[in-house]
Design a protein around this nucleic acid. Structure first.
Ligand SMILES: [Mn+2]
Ligand SMILES: [Mn+2]
Ligand SMILES: [Mn+2]
Ligand SMILES: [Mn+2]
Lengths: 219, 219
DNA sequence: ATATATTTTTAGACATATCTAAATTTAAAT
DNA sequence: ATTTAAATTTAGATATGTCTAAAAATATAT
C-alpha cells in the first residue's frame, strides 16, 4: 500500500504533532528523521499528492485523517511487535526498538490482528506506550510526569518519555521498572532532584531523569 | 547487509540449483522471479561484484559459498516464520507463504535465533521443507516421490513439491495432511493414477498430484 | 556453411529516495 | 525599510531496481 519511507514520514509527523501542538515544519521532520530538509520537501509533496498530509509550501504540514490512520496502523504494529519480542522472545526492553522499526512495515492485516490475539490484546507496549486497537483507537495517556508530583505523593511507574537504549539501560541499572510503586520522599529545591522510595530501596533522581518518567497517581 | 532484491535473487538461484543440476541461465531466473531477462543480467553483475555468484556472460551463473550462505539464511527465516504463523498464530498452511516472503528479509540474527528457540527448534516447515539450522546446515530430504512407490508400499506423507495455495487447498479438500499414513492400493497403468488408502478413507490420486507428494517410507 | 531462431546483453528510460549546492522565501535585526 | 540570517524549496546528481527496444552472442536448422 505505502512504501516504508512514506510510512516512516507519516509516523514521524504523527509523533511531532503529538509532542507539540504547533504546525510541523520541514526542519522538525528532518531533525527527527535524521535526514535533510530537501529530502523532506520532496516527500511532503508526494504525501500531499496522495492526500495523506495537508502541505502548504513554507507553511508547514499536518496529517489528514487518512494520514493519521496510516500512522496509527504503523504504530500499532511497532508496539505489538515490541510486546511480542519482550514477552514471547524474552528480549530486553532496550533492544526491541530497532527490530520493531523493521517489523512495523510488514503488510498484512491478518498478521497484525492474529498477533494481537496471540498476545492477548495488550494495551501497552514494553515502554508503557498505548497500543492502538484494530480501529486505530488509542487511549490517551492519563499518567502524570514525575516533575509534577509533590512530596508524599505515591504513584506507579507506567511509562517513559525517553525510549532510547541509554535511558532504558539506566533504569535497569537503577532497578526501576514499569509497575514499580514509587513514593516521593523529598524534592531538593536547589537542583529539582527527587528523592524517592521504592518497595526495595531509596534513591535520588535527577530532574533530567524525572522529566522522562510517567506515573499513574495512586490516590 | 543485503537488499531485499539481492536476497530474493540469491534464494531463486539456490532453488534452481537444487531442482536441476545444470548451469542456471538468465532466463531460468527471469522465469522463476517473474521479471525480465535484462533485469536479471543487471542484478547478476551486481551479485558477481559482491562475490555472491560466479557469473560468466552468456554462460550462466552459480552461487559462491558465500552466496549460498546468504540464501540459506533467508530460507531459514522464511521457513521459521511460516512455522510460527501456522503453529502459533493459527494460519492455514496455504496462507503463510506471502507473509513469510516479507518476514524473511527482517535483519537480526538475535531475532531469528530467539524465534527458533521459542518455536522449539523445529526441523521442518508447514510444507515439509527442512529448516536450515543456525549454521546453515540443512538435512537433505530422504523422502521419496509417490510416483516411485509400488503397490503395497506404505509411507507417511511428509512433504509437497508444489507449495502453491491452489495445491495446498486441494489437499485440504481431499483431507490429506502431512503426517498421514498412506498405503498404495493400486496403480492404474492407463493414466498412472494411484489409488491410496489412508486411516479414514480411500481415494484416487492423479499422476499430476502424485508427482507433487513426498513420503517417508515405512519399511 | 549459411541462414534463422533463441538467448542474453546493452542502451536508454523511468520511478523511488536520497544528497549537495544554489535560489528563493520568510523571519529577525538594525 | 533595508539588511542580514534562517528556513525552505528547487535544480541537478547519485544509487537501486525495473522496464522496452535494439544489438550482440549462441544455438538450431536447412
Ligand atoms: Mn519503539
Ligand atoms: Mn515502544
Ligand atoms: Mn514459502
Ligand atoms: Mn514452506
Amino acid at each position: 500500500m505505502f512504501t516504508q519511507a512514506e510510512e516512516n514520514y507519516l509516523k514521524a509527523i504523527y509523533a511531532l504533532e503529538n509532542e507539540s501542538s504547533e504546525s510541523i515544519s520541514t526542519n522538525n521532520i528532518a531533525l527527527k528523521m535524521e535526514t535533510k530538509a530537501s529530502s523532506v520537501t520532496d516527500m511532503l509533496k508526494k504525501l500531499a499528492a496522495k492526500k495523506l498530509v495537508e502541505y502548504k509550501p513554507y507553511k508547514g504540514v499536518h496529517l489528514t485523517f487518512e494520514g493519521e490512520k496510516v500512522a496509527l496502523k504503523v504504530i500499532r504494529k511497532h508496539r505489538l511487535w515490541e510486546y511480542f519480542l519482550v514477552k514471547k522472545l524474552k528480549f530486553s526492553w532496550d533492544s526491541v526498538h530497532e527490530i520493531a522499526e523493521q517489523l512495523e512495515h510488514i503488510q498484512s492485516d491478518d498478521l497484525v490482528n492474529s498477533l494481537d490475539a496471540f498476545l492477548g490484546f495488550p494495551k501497552k507496549d514494553p515502554h508503557g506506550d498505548p497500543i492502538p486497537d484494530k480501529d486505530g483507537i488509542v487511549v490517551s495517556n492519563t499518567s502524570i510526569n514525575m516533575l509534577g508530583m509533590k512530596v508524599g505523593d505515591v504513584g506507579v511507574l507506567n511509562g517513559v518519555k525517553d525510549s532510547t537504549d541509554a535511558f532504558l539501560r539506566y533504569l535497569d541499572k537503577k532497578n526501576l521498572a514499569l509497575g514499580d510503586r514509587i513514593k516521593i520522599i523529598d524534592i531538593e529545591p536547589y537542583d529539582n532532584s527527587v528523592y524517592i522510595e521504592t518497595k526495595t530501596h531509596h534513591m535520588s533522581i535527577s530532574k533530567h531523569v524525572a522529566k522522562n518518567l510517567y506515573l499513574k497517581n495512586k490516590k
